[in-house]
Simulated scan of single mutants.
Amino acid sequence: MPKIVDPETRRTAVAEAVFRVVAARGLPQASLRNVAAEAGLATGSVRHYFTGSEEMIEFALEVFVERISARVLAKVEPAKTGPSDEARLAAVEDLLAELLPMDDERHTEAVVWLAFADAARTSPQLRPLLRRLYDGVRLLMRRILEGSAQRGALREGLDIDVETERLAALVDGLLTDGVVQPDRMTPELMHAVLRTHLRSISR
């Protein structure tokens, strides 16, 4: 009896292979042939699910965005409803750390993120998806800051627009340094920088 393969499961497995190829060899190497080999599939099998490498990479980026979004959103509630300002501050730090290369899995994600972000500069297909992730991150940060301001936990006189971009820029910088110079920008240092910044804008 022929084996029944769920199309979405197979497509997601191909997306995982895209991530591994991109992390190890860069986005230009994420061809149908290379990704199929990484996934342990025949190239023709991958073509059954994707018409070409562009469609495959676009789908992989969608999976990437959804995965990170789900993981971050799962940590929003403690950041909003912690029993004390200190607990909520720690929860915000923990939430933001999900975007940073704190362990092997998140390091791979950060490498893939930078590769996709660079490719999106010249790819009309990828640009909207990257914009969605950027906008989602900033919306999340804005809501955290606004919630803190409403509880009286932020310093008075802060411009939420500016602080949103400042926090986003800090996370972007930590992510890049954590990928490019992981021996210097360690997880411990990233946590310390996040914590210091959050305390600097808190009452």
Rank of each mutant, 00 (worst) to 15 (best):
V76E: 11
E86Q: 12
S123L: 09
E98V: 05
S69K: 13
L73I: 12
H107Y: 14
D103Y: 06
L99S: 07
E98T: 09
L99V: 06
L73T: 14
L73D: 15
V65Q: 03
P78H: 02
K75P: 04
A91S: 07
A60I: 02
A97F: 11
L96Q: 02
L96V: 12
A70T: 12
D104P: 04
F59W: 06
W113S: 06
T81A: 11
F116V: 10
R88H: 09
S123M: 08
F64H: 14
A110K: 10
K80P: 00
A91V: 01
L100E: 11
F59M: 02
D118M: 06
V72Y: 00
S69Y: 06
R71A: 06
M102H: 00
E86F: 03
A115V: 01
L96D: 00
E58S: 15
Q125R: 15
S69T: 15
A60Y: 04
L100Y: 08
V111D: 05
E86L: 07
P124I: 08
A117Y: 10
E58F: 01
E62R: 15
R106W: 00
I68R: 13
V65S: 03
D103S: 03
L100G: 10
A117Q: 15
E86K: 07
K75T: 11
P83R: 08
V92R: 12
G82D: 04
L95E: 05
A90I: 03
T122M: 11
T108G: 05
G82V: 07
D94Q: 13
E66M: 12
A90H: 04
L114C: 10
A119Y: 09
D94Y: 06
R71G: 15
L61I: 09
P78C: 06
F59C: 02
E93I: 08
L100V: 10
V92Q: 12
V65E: 09
A97N: 07
D118H: 12
E105S: 04
A79T: 02
R67E: 13
S123K: 09
A115P: 00
A87R: 05
R71V: 06
A117L: 14
D118R: 15
L95R: 02
A119S: 13
F64E: 06
R88L: 05
E58A: 15
V65M: 04
L95Q: 03
S84E: 06
K80A: 13
S123C: 07
S69G: 02
V112F: 00
V65H: 07
E98Q: 11
D94M: 04
L95P: 05
A119L: 07
R121E: 14
L96M: 11
V76D: 05
E66V: 11
T108K: 12
E109D: 15
W113K: 08
A110R: 11
L99G: 10
E86S: 12
L95S: 04
E77C: 04
E98K: 04
E86D: 14
V112G: 08
V63C: 13
A74D: 15
K80R: 14
R106M: 01
P78N: 03
L114W: 10
A119K: 12
P78E: 01
F59T: 07
I68S: 14
R71D: 09
A70L: 03
